[in-house]
Simulated assay, not measured.
Amino acid sequence: MDLNTITEVAHPQKREQLPVWTAGDAWLAGGTWLFSEPQVHLTRLIDLTDLKWPALTIGETGLTIAATCTVAQLDALACPPEWLAAPLINQCCRAFLASFKIWKTATVGGNLCMSLPAGPMISLTAALDGVCTVWKADGSERRVGVADFVTGNNRNVLTPGDLLRQIEIPLAALKRRAAFRQISLTLLGRSAALLIGSLGSEGAMALTVTASTARPVRLSFSQIPDPRELREAIREHIPDAIYHDDVHGKPAWRKHMTLRLAEEIRAELQGLV
Score class of each variant (00 low, 15 high):
Met121Trp: 06
Phe96Ala: 04
Ala106Phe: 08
Pro38Ser: 13
Trp53His: 05
Leu34Asn: 02
Leu88His: 09
Thr32Asp: 00
Leu28Met: 03
Glu8Ser: 13
Leu51Ala: 11
Trp53Cys: 00
Leu51Cys: 07
Thr5Ala: 06
Pro120Ala: 09
Asp50Gln: 13
Gly119Met: 13
Ala86Glu: 12
Pro87Glu: 13
Arg15His: 02
Lys52Arg: 14
Glu8Arg: 15
Ala86Tyr: 07
Phe96Ser: 01
Lys101Gly: 11
Asp50Phe: 03
Thr5Gly: 07
Lys104Ser: 15
Arg44Glu: 11
Thr57Glu: 15
Thr70Tyr: 04
Pro117Cys: 09
Ala118Gln: 12
Arg94Pro: 01
Ala10Phe: 14
Ala10His: 13
Gly59Gln: 08
Thr61Gln: 15
Asn4Val: 09
Gly59Val: 04
Leu45Val: 10
Ile6Gly: 10
Leu34Tyr: 02
Ala106Leu: 14
Leu28Pro: 01
Pro80Leu: 15
Cys113Phe: 01
Pro80Phe: 11
His41Cys: 01
Thr57Asn: 06
Thr22Arg: 15
Val20Ser: 12
Pro117Trp: 09
Val20Tyr: 00
Ser115His: 11
Lys101Phe: 09
Asp50Pro: 03
Met1Asp: 10
Glu16Met: 05
Phe100Cys: 02
Cys92His: 06
Val9Ile: 15
Asn111Leu: 07
Leu28Asn: 02
Ala98Glu: 07
Ile102Trp: 02
Ala55Lys: 01
His11Pro: 00
Lys52Trp: 00
Cys92Leu: 06
Ala76Ser: 13
Ala95Gln: 13
Trp33Arg: 04
Pro80Ser: 15
Thr105Glu: 07
Ile65Trp: 07
Gly119Glu: 12
Asn90Phe: 02
Leu48Phe: 03
Ala66Glu: 06
Lys52Cys: 09
Gly31Asn: 02
Ala78Arg: 14
Asn90Val: 08
Cys92Lys: 09
Thr64Val: 14
Thr64Trp: 00
Cys92Thr: 09
Ile58Arg: 09
Val71Thr: 10
Val9Gln: 05
Trp27Tyr: 13
Ser99Ala: 10
Pro87Met: 12
Thr70His: 06
Val9Ala: 04
Gly31Lys: 00
Leu18Arg: 03
Gln39Met: 08
Ser36Lys: 08
Ile65His: 06
Pro12Glu: 09
Ala85Lys: 05
Arg15Ser: 05
Thr68Tyr: 01
Trp33Ala: 01
Leu84Met: 12
Gly109Val: 09
Ile6Ala: 05
Thr105His: 05
Phe100Ile: 10
Ala76Met: 07
Thr22Leu: 11
Gly24His: 07
Pro19Leu: 13
Ile65Tyr: 04
Thr61Tyr: 02
Ala55Thr: 04
Thr5Trp: 10
Ala29Arg: 00
Thr64Phe: 01
Trp33Gly: 00
Ile46Met: 03
Pro38Ala: 14
Thr61Trp: 01
Met114Trp: 09
Thr22Ile: 12
Glu37Gly: 03
Cys92Val: 04
Gly62Val: 05
Asp2Ser: 14
Gln39Cys: 01
Val108Leu: 08
Ser99Pro: 01
Gly110His: 02
Pro117Lys: 10
Leu116Ser: 14
Met121Glu: 08
Gly62Ala: 10
Pro120Ile: 04
Pro54Met: 10
Ala10Tyr: 14
Leu28His: 04
Met1Trp: 06
Gln91Ser: 12
Thr43His: 15
